[in-house]
Design a protein around this nucleic acid. Structure first.
Lengths: 358, 358
DNA sequence: TCCGGCATGTAAAACGTTTTGGGTATTTTT
DNA sequence: AAAAATACCCAAAACGTTTTACATGCCGGA
């Protein structure tokens, strides 16, 4: 029906000419800026609508240094090299939720790869702000962006950049304690932990928390590391290594990744051990593998959607300024104006890979 | 260590001044455009590196009408209203893979919501091109974008816009035939289909293909529809409706969505039917639910990663022109230059919800 | 000595906005 | 009636590039 072949978009000049005013007036009328006669404003608005005019985001961005795009960099995917199944459960849910939240707040969300590779940051530096998921130690991406004056919010801290404070925790400390507690309540006496090898805070802080607990209660720490990219095979291989070592096995194993946990469980079962009777297993990240192993594996639900939403909220407040400018409204806030990272609730999904309590 | 507090990015002017040349020369030297003495070019390049200069993507975009961002709109998510679990398996894997592929080709990928809602297309019209996943009939998003001269590639056709040809099939016709064939080989005599209610080509063409088969072999078509958003509950409800209707049940049911299939299977089992002995079930979209039901459900692997990659490839070729400008290289290509949608391989995952062959 | 051509470089326009700093009527005040 | 205030509007600069079209100096050939 409307077979208009319009090749060219209407510009502010077209609107100005058609409405018989200057482009300044059009800009003001449309943005509610200057002081304009009501009749004029209305005429401009109508003309703009007639012409199907909408301001060019690029030109606007050039002038006002604000493109309306948030960047998202998922560091584990950079080191992994691709969006493997490993990432599907957590990271892609994270990305999807972040996109929706960004859109709700008037931004687009662009997935980007590490902008420091190659020497062309390219489009990356055009984004208004960035979310970096699971930064590595002294993350060069954070370095690049902050050096260029771009706002950055991280999910998980940069473990070697204490001065960088714009990050949200993923509850790592609390979650690790919760899992240990969970094991203890179910009669564990010898707890081990299996982390990944990426140099990020999830791995580091989980281990730290575990070691602190071990030191406190006098248990010799049983810490294992395994490449995240190896997935279930990696978990199975580690199980075999533990069996072959001849040392007494732990009676409870906390694997951070769901795939390590699933592989570990399968490996132990293959050697004749019963889960959870002989050994209990838990995972630090719920995923399809933990939900559908036999038995299903007790896991932390990292709540990717809630975390993503919190990260976007945090970043947008950093960019636009905290809307709540009412001083004294929040007696706990000292600065009053500086945004504070929102809290996210995690919970442990209690499944059959750990014994019933009692 | 490098505690440079640089607030402002270096511009092309800074480089020009430092290198003692004009900005034109800098631009040319860096883009390999004009004809410049080698010594000069080298000096400019070094100066630029010194200053950590990289061209501002926004300014470049304004001038050259090319931002370096691809937009992705997933229509079922728009109608669904959010990134629910339903979408996790397929759509988020799709988005992730599309992002990686776009990055490999020098673009960022921005997830966007339907840009026709609200009257502010905003950032959407700044993207260089768009991928629309599963457009609805006469999709207004395609209308908006093409009217503004923005390249669009769709995954799945717009069933009421035959003139729009820049789409990749998702193998719907072939896949439907494959499932029917699969059922027949396993002794099915009364096959039903359950589609969703979104007005897209996946639903429409699956039904069309099914009806064509039914007409040809003289079976009365058994077509059911159910809201995609209802998920497993919807599948279960439909099973109950079929049971309550008093009509003879089909002995094979093809549910497009994995969740409908899982719910349908559970609903029939609850009524005492055996899967696959009494009734076989298959799904048109592999997902966690189909993999992990009891029994696991035979499904089409829609290969979201491959499809996403193909869509990005197609779009980028549309934008940049097909690199292969060698005429006669491909004897099958008639036009020679116009990009052609790439092919994607789907396959059927044969599981226990359908009987063994023979 | 003059001219055409070549090699190298540059000034300025253009992209479509937002924003600054007036300018011109009209009205109000004295 | 002149000065001051008000209300409305606009020209031009600026954002950082790319690109067009031209300028300059030098050389060799007539």
């Amino acid at each position: 029906m409307t077979n208009n072949p319009p090749r060219r978009r209407a510009t502010i000049h077209d609107v100005a000419k058609r409405a018989g005013v200057s482009i300044t007036t059009v800009s003001h009328a449309l943005n509610g800026k200057g002081v304009i006669a009501d009749a004029t404003r209305q005429r401009v608005v109508e003309t703009a609508a007639d012409l199907g005019y909408s301001p060019d985001a690029i030109a606007r961005g050039l002038r006002s240094r604000r493109l309306g795009i948030l960047g998202l960099v998922i560091r584990p995917l950079d080191t992994l090299g691709s969006y493997q199944p490993e990432g599907v459960d957590y990271f892609l849910r994270f990305a999807g939720a972040a996109a929706v939240e960004a859109l709700d707040r008037g931004y687009g969300l662009a997935l980007m790869r590490d902008p420091t590779v190659g020497n062309a940051p390219g489009i990356a530096l055009a984004a208004d702000g960035f979310i970096i998921s699971d930064p590595v130690a002294s993350d060069p991406v954070i370095e690049l962006l902050t050096r260029n004056g771009i706002a950055v919010v991280a999910v998980g801290r940069d473990i070697e950049r204490p001065e960088f404070s714009a990050w949200l925790g993923a509850g790592t400390h609390t979650n690790t304690d919760a899992v240990i507690q969970h094991f203890l309540e179910r009669g564990a006496t010898r707890i081990a932990i299996v982390t990944g090898e990426d140099n990020n805070s999830w791995n580091a802080d989980s281990e730290l928390t575990y070691r602190a607990w071990a030191a406190e209660c006098g248990q010799a720490p049983l810490v294992y590391h395994q490449d995240e990219g190896l997935g279930e095979a990696g978990g199975r291989a580690l199980a075999e290594r533990m069996l072959a070592s001849g040392e007494p096995l732990p009676d409870a194993i906390y694997c951070l990744t769901g795939r390590h946990a699933a592989g570990m469980q399968a490996g132990l079962q293959a050697a004749g051990y019963l889960i959870p009777d002989d050994i209990m297993i838990a995972s630090g990240s719920d995923s399809e593998q933990t939900r559908n192993s036999a038995p299903p594996i007790t896991s932390i639900d990292l709540a990717p959607e809630a975390t993503a939403k919190a990260a976007v909220t945090f970043l947008v407040e950093l960019l636009d300024g905290v809307p709540d400018a009412d001083p004294g409204a929040d007696p706990d806030s000292d600065g009053g104006g500086d945004p504070v990272p929102p809290e996210v609730d995690y919970r442990i999904r209690d499944r059959a890979s750990t014994r019933s309590i009692g």
